[in-house]
Write a protein that binds this DNA or RNA. Structure first.
Length: 275
DNA sequence: ATACGCCCCTGGTGGC
DNA sequence: TGCCACCAGGGGCGTA
């Protein structure tokens, strides 16, 4: 969102190309027409959604899915027009000061919709979202209330955007490790003392990742093309078989394990996240 | 209400 | 070199 904001805020979109019918869902009718000629007033983020406010009373709702990214480059630099659109660049906008902003998404799990600016949070995709993890209102008591009564594993509960909004698989694994909580524990059993350990670790993990520019898997880059580097700071994610960074090593600790929960990989230290 | 697969896609990797 | 199985930052939806 910040990458988009730097290039788009205050600018007029002089051209918009929509190259397919939709991604996860069909694009809204008239998307290109809504974008063309609009001035970008500002941005906000909610959970994993980016909201781009336009003059005229509408906002663009963007989700990058698993493989989506924004591509920002200067019109004419290295002759991008001659090169044509990037691979899987499904939507492209051009600003009145000569920048090209593209939505690239190979797997096409991303989404774009339009929503009235005065009712952004009433959109069906935003209406049920839980608290923002970096908000000061997100406290152990709030998390405990969200976990209470749920028998689902804490891993799944933290991925449930209704309980806390914006955590993905990487950061849930990392936060659970840092808090020393077994991913398989019932959510309800983590309320209270567990939540008190978990909330600060969730916040710290996210803050460190944002400061590092995110985690670059495969080809994810920030809009300016810079690689995030938080992947080097992962303590457990993607480290199956490696030594736990907080343990003395074998035989005391067998190393990082990988299990599958609800179809997604979970990485953990069996010694520090026991029970 | 809650919980669990399934599915939407492309592409990279590693084994044979 | 080719083929194939498996895996991947998400999350809505249908079904039990």
């Amino acid at each position: 969102m910040r990458g988009l904001q730097a290039r788009l805020q205050g600018r007029v979109i002089v051209r918009a190309e929509v190259r397919r019918e939709g991604l996860r869902w069909p694009f809204p009718d008239g998307l290109a027409a809504h974008l063309t000629g609009a001035r970008v007033l500002g941005f906000r983020r909610r959970a994993k959604y980016i909201l781009m406010r336009l003059d005229g009373g509408g906002s663009v709702l963007l989700h990058l899915g698993m493989s989506g990214r924004m591509l920002i480059r200067r019109r004419g630099a290295n002759d991008p027009d001659a090169a044509g659109p990037a691979l899987h660049e499904h939507v492209e906008m051009e600003t009145d000061d000569g920048w090209l902003v593209g939505f690239v998404d190979p797997r096409r799990f991303g989404s774009i919709d339009l929503v009235p600016t005065d009712a952004e949070d009433a959109h069906r995709l935003l209406a049920g979202l839980g608290p923002e993890p970096l908000d000061e209102l997100f406290t152990p008591a709030v998390l405990s209330a969200g976990l209470a009564g749920r028998r689902t594993p804490i891993k799944a509960a933290l991925l449930d955007q209704r309980i806390v909004a914006g955590l993905g698989n990487i950061y849930v694994c990392e936060a659970l490790f840092r808090a020393g909580i077994a991913p398989s524990r019932h959510a309800a059993d983590v309320a209270g003392a567990g939540a008190a350990r978990l909330v600060p670790e969730i916040k710290a993990t996210l803050q460190e990742a944002i400061a590092a520019g995110g985690s670059s898997l495969r080809d994810y880059v920030q809009p300016d093309g810079e690689l995030g580097y938080f992947q080097h700071a992962w303590r457990v994610y993607g480290r199956e078989g490696e030594r736990c960074p907080a343990c003395p090593g074998p035989p005391a600790c067998p190393g990082i394990a990988r299990v599958v929960q609800a179809g997604r990989s979970t990485f953990l230290c069996p010694r520090l996240q026991a029970g």
